[in-house]
Design a protein around this nucleic acid. Structure first.
Length: 799
RNA sequence: GCGGGUGUGGCGGAAUUGGUAGACGCGUCAGACUUAGGAUCUGAUUUCGCAAGGAGUGGGGGUUCAAGUCCCUUCACCCGCACCA
């Protein structure tokens, strides 16, 4: 009876040995070059690991293992982003404390991750809800406060009436709450804000030097939304009404102005409006609308502010002023100058209200629609005859000279709403004193741990469950010693993950978040792989957070990640998203149980291009499962005294070169196919030289570490294959000495010829013309030209 | 509307600088071993055609001796943002 590969016993055996011997533990070693590979740490949900997680984890595990074999000192850590809503919702439903359920979930995740055989250094495992960890998250918040970047502000926030929680813009999807799907409304609330907008420019500029995939860069740039233009002051009552425009060159075409209904001048001048009631009604109406309703309607609405006009500083014209909800309060100055001839939105509005449309750039047909392209200026006084770019410069110069304007850059990015009315998050380490205002608690009192509360519901005012924490709330002011009250909001989910990669460098340090030595050695992260969904959330926040720490002198470089790549999603077999409600979730435990961790890892890498969406297929999984068995089966053909032939070496070196290169480029699916091709070749041999099989095992060890380790041991080695040296491919030995050239007539394939490598053009031509089929095809034709590309092709042009 | 991406067999997908389209895997078909196992091995498998030969990488056009690859144009789908002045 032939032995079958017993993956269950073998995988378990090696996992235990690796664990016991701490094979993947790393320490600072200044004699070795370091390599820091990072994957996004999971939220430990009750559902356990999803098959999507291991796609990213395996990919970087492959890279980390290869780098390790290439002599790098590799840091490949894992941890848990453990604060979050599901644990809290679970607590509300069952009364189980979030700390308890979270701990159980982390244990389950750890078991699952270990069962896949990742080469994480488990001694560095971190957990964001551990007070020893969030102590430093709180410490960093205080630094933000001390530098004036954390501030409390009453703003209209995105409020989810179902979760009773304020959301960041990033958490609102099409006007709905990202978590529960309820429609988000606007609500004025005092919130802690962090001034990420102060870093907007640097967050764009510094992307230049980073090796991030393009879609990440462009998505971040798009999200930050930088636009250059000018601020212009229009006379309005006793005030200056300032607008932001990217087209100051069109100022002579301004025929009206529009304020956001929330603009301060609306209330300030209310008494002067002839149609106060109408104005008031419109303001109230828009306040009631959700963002979604506001953006959904295509029709422009608005009300003229009768009784008051604005003066265009360029031509002195008096123009009407409107309020309309198509002007947003949060962007620019909340007011615009309207140029209906050259802006489609203004054009639509002007049509509804019968406002004049004055063309100031030549081109298009403005009886149809606005002309938004370039052209020569007309009707524009001193700008006449100029094109857009020149006119823009001149218009700004003119405004500066006459003191009514200035060049200005604006961003779509808003400051980060940092308060959550939730229990299961980091307490914000601030107290409020009637006399001294908001004060941070002293560093010596960190961590400020979460108190026990009677229940986890927010109250109807939308206040955090911490508002029910009794005595915990009352404290003294660190400044004056008087009575003070603690902040009851907690930090958002994104706080702990904004700096976790720093903690991995020195996870047990209780004096600092990480020592300078550790940061100097391990940072930057050399390669960070994660999901596209975090591009404008975690990835942007953590870049900002890191830049702030850099400015304070706490980290040695301005950017945290050198390289960022992203994996595609894994969908169910039918192309749908995997979800509990659809019942199509694949549980990694089941796969590992049935096919083993190695087959699972290999399949995750083989299923398709790494950066693209892939569909799960049990049938395809069978293919790699068979492959694992095949590699195991080859072992019995390995004979100690066999010498490899030239052809054998050619196949081996070709495989080494391909696999090495393809791993580096994250073309894992083709790296695996190279291994398969090589294994097919080895299968065709009667006897396999040890060298051939050993190198196969080394090349496979990043993908299937258990199998590789087992067979390595069976070959008689007493070392770990994961600590062996990565094989070097020799391009010369991989080369064929004969090549097959295609022979074409007028670009159509008519046959092939076998020639020595680098055979001369003449020989190639002669051999091609000698082919029977070629002779036949050329009958009665005249050869016009013969094109020979050495080692590739012979093309005969004939008529 | 703006930004990014993808279109290749029955399916997942391969194809340096333009140079034999369909590697590798799945599935299917045939055979072998055996006999009942979703096992293993061998062979075939883009399509039309008995063959010679033709067609073929979403559609249309172009450049070239030669185009999946370069250029123009068009369609479909996916992701992100979205009244951002």
């Amino acid at each position: 009876m032939e032995e079958r590969y017993n993956f269950k016993a073998i995988e378990k055996k090696w996992q235990e040995i690796w664990d016991d011997e701490k094979v993947y533990k790393v320490e600072i070693d200044k004699n070795k070059e370091k390599f820091y590979a990072l994957v996004e740490f999971p939220y430990p949900s009750g559902a356990g690991l999803h098959v999507g997680h291991p796609r990213s984890y395996t990919a970087l595990d492959v890279i980390a293992r290869k780098k390790r074999m290439q002599g790098f000192n590799v840091l490949y850590p894992m941890g848990f982003d453990a604060f979050g809503l599901p644990a809290e919702n679970y607590a509300i439903k069952t009364g189980v404390h979030p700390a308890v359920s979270t701990k159980a979930n982390i244990e389950n995740f750890t078991r699952q991750l270990k069962s896949i055989g990742f080469s994480f250094d488990w001694d560095r495992c971190i957990n964001t809800c551990d007070p020893e960890y969030y102590k430093w998250t709180q410490w960093m918040f205080i630094k933000f406060f001390e530098k004036g970047l954390a501030y409390k502000d009453k703003i209209a926030i995105n409020w989810c009436p179902s979760c009773k929680v304020g959301l960041a813009n990033e958490e609102v999807i099409n006007g709905h709450c990202e978590r529960c799907g309820a429609e988000v409304v606007r609500k004025d609330k005092e919130q802690w804000m962090i001034a990420i907008t102060k870093y907007a420019d640097r967050l764009i500029k510094d992307l230049d030097d980073l090796d991030f995939i393009d879609r990440v860069k462009s998505q971040q740039i798009n999200w930050i939304g930088r636009s250059e233009g000018a601020e212009l002051d229009f006379e309005f009552g006793d005030d200056k009404l300032t607008v932001f425009t990217t087209r100051p060159d069109t100022a002579f075409g301004v025929t009206y102005m529009v304020l956001a209904p929330e603009h301060e001048f609306v209330q300030k001048y209310m008494g002067k409006f002839e149609n106060q009631n109408e104005v008031r009604a419109y303001v109230e109406e828009t306040a009631k609308k959700s963002d979604l309703q506001r953006t959904m309607s295509d029709e422009k609405t608005g009300v003229e502010l009768r009784g008051i006009k604005a003066k265009n500083p360029y031509n002195g014209q008096m123009i009407p002023v409107f309020i309309s909800d198509y002007v947003l309060t949060g962007y620019g100055t909340g007011a615009i100058m309207a140029v209906p001839a050259h802006d489609q939105r203004d054009y639509d509005f002007a049509k509804v209200f019968n406002l004049p449309i004055v063309q100031v750039l030549d081109g298009g047909d403005i009886s149809e629609k606005a002309w938004e392209e370039d052209g020569k200026h007309i009707n524009s006084g001193f700008l006449d005859g100029l094109n857009k770019d020149e006119a823009m410069r001149k218009a700004i110069d003119y405004a500066v000279e006459h003191g009514f304007g200035r060049a200005k850059v604006n961003f779509k990015l808003r400051d980060w709403v940092f308060s959550r009315q939730r229990y299961w998050g980091e307490p914000i380490p601030m107290v409020y004193c009637e006399k001294c205002g908001w004060q941070p608690i002293p560093e010596s009192e960190l961590p400020l741990t979460l108190p026990e509360v009677p229940d986890y519901h927010p109250n109807d005012e939308g206040e955090s469950p911490l508002s029910k924490a009794g005595d915990w709330l009352n404290t003294t002011c660190p400044k004056c010693g008087g009575k003070a009250r603690r902040e009851t909001d907690t930090m958002p989910n994104w706080a702990g993950s904004s700096w976790y990669f720093l903690r991995y460098c020195d996870p047990h340090n209780d004096k600092e978040f990480a020592s300078k030595e550790a940061l100097d050695y391990w940072m930057n992260v050399d390669w960070y792989n994660g999901g596209m969904e975090h591009t404008t959330l975690h990835l942007l926040y953590s870049r900002f957070w890191h830049k702030f720490l850099y400015d304070c002198g706490y980290v040695p470089m301005p950017e945290p990640y050198k390289k960022r790549t992203s994996h595609g999603m894994i969908l169910a077999e039918n192309g749908e998203k995997m979800s509990k409600s659809r019942g199509n979730v694949i549980n990694p435990d089941d796969i590992i149980d049935a096919y083993g961790a190695d087959a699972f890892r290999l399949y995750e890498m083989f299923m398709g291009p790494f950066d693209q969406t892939a569909m799960w297929s049990d049938e395809s999984l069978m293919g790699v499962y068979r492959f694992v068995g095949k590699v195991f089966g080859l072992f019995k053909k390995v004979y100690k005294n066999t010498k490899p032939s030239e052809k054998d070496l050619r196949a081996m070196h070709k495989c080494i070169l391909e696999v090495s290169e393809r791993i580096e480029q994250m073309r894992f699916n083709t790296a695996v196919s190279s291994l398969m091709t090589y294994v097919n070749y080895l299968s065709s041999l009667d006897k396999i030289a040890p060298e051939l099989y050993e190198n196969l095992l080394k090349l496979m060890s990043p993908f299937t570490p258990h199998l590789a380790e087992e067979m390595w041991a069976r070959l008689g080695h007493d070392t770990f294959i994961v600590a062996e040296t990565w094989p070097k491919g020799d391009a010369k030995l991989a080369e064929e000495n004969t090549v097959t050239l295609a022979v074409q007539i007028c670009g159509k394939m008519r046959g092939t010829i076998e020639l020595a490598k680098d055979a001369s053009r003449e020989d190639a031509e002669k051999a091609a013309l000698n082919l029977e089929n070629v002779k036949k095809q050329l009958e009665g034709k005249e050869i016009k030209k013969v094109i020979v590309v050495p080692n590739k092709i012979v093309n005969i042009v004939a008529a």
